[in-house]
């Protein structure tokens, strides 16, 4: 790989960072209360699955020098629903039901499948990109509403735990701001409306995806870790 291949560089960094985070979350499970062990296991799974895919994506990029759309969407289809599972696990203490878990999983899967169809099966037309982009956005908006104003927000408020309230709100910010990079990337692809209307290209989209993935997945996990460790310390002190 060329020394100035910044995209390839971020694939390497992403691979190692995700792997390190997975190991960290997995071993830190022993330091938290039982009720938080599942949350940390899910954080380890998210970063672990991402690390495996980043390994593949790094090789694909190194060999072909192309955007590894297929591997990226496989990674997202597995890890994003798991991120939604974290919301369920965090609010379970306040009475979150299985229906919330399934609604979030279905919405996130819907969002990604529509995004994949819009990106991988594109005929280059704006109509195709916009149609699937809007359908995908509906899934995103459902998740955004649920975590900011809907069931998750209400359950966090009812949890009577400042740590959970703050943690869920921080994760909601990840959904609002951190996840925004993905639709921007989508809209920059050929046929995407930012591409056709403003001429924004997808040349550096992998660079931004890699940075966003590292922040969103590892950051998400660290917020969950902070909730678990703070809450466990409080329980011990009591």
């Amino acid at each position: 790989m060329a020394p100035d291949d910044y995209v390839g560089f971020t694939f390497f960094i992403g691979y190692m960072a995700m792997a390190a985070a997975a190991v960290f979350f997995f071993f830190e499970r022993s330091r938290v209360d039982d009720k938080w062990k599942m949350s940390l296991l899910v954080s380890a799974l998210i970063t672990g699955i991402a690390a495996v895919h980043y390994g593949y994506m790094r090789d694909y990029w190194g060999t072909f020098g192309e955007s590894p759309t297929f591997f990226r969407y496989v990674d997202w289809t597995l890890t994003v629903p798991l991120m939604c599972v974290e919301f369920y696990l965090l609010t379970k203490v306040a009475g979150a039901g299985k229906s919330l878990l399934w609604k979030l999983i279905i919405a996130s899967t819907w969002m990604l499948v529509c995004g994949y169809i819009g990106e991988s099966m594109s005929d280059g037309s704006t109509g195709h990109s916009v149609q699937w982009g809007i359908l995908s956005t509906l899934g995103y908006l459902y998740i955004l509403y649920t975590v900011w104003l809907g069931e998750v927000a209400k359950l966090a408020e009812a949890s009577n735990s400042d740590v959970v309230k703050r943690g869920v709100r921080t994760l909601a910010w990840f959904v609002l701001v951190g996840w925004a990079i993905y639709p921007i990337g989508y809209m920059c692809m050929e046929g995407g409306w930012l591409n056709s209307a403003l001429g924004w290209g997808s040349d550096n989209v992998d660079l931004w995806y890699n940075i966003a993935d590292a922040i969103n997945k590892i950051g998400f996990g660290l917020v969950v870790y902070n909730i678990a460790i703070t809450s466990s310390a409080k329980t011990k002190a009591a």
């Binding site: 916009v130 809007i134 956005t137 639709p183």
Partner: peptide, 9 residues
Amino acid sequence: LLIMPILSV
């Protein structure tokens, strides 16, 4: 998010 792409078409 929903109107901007539609307008672009």
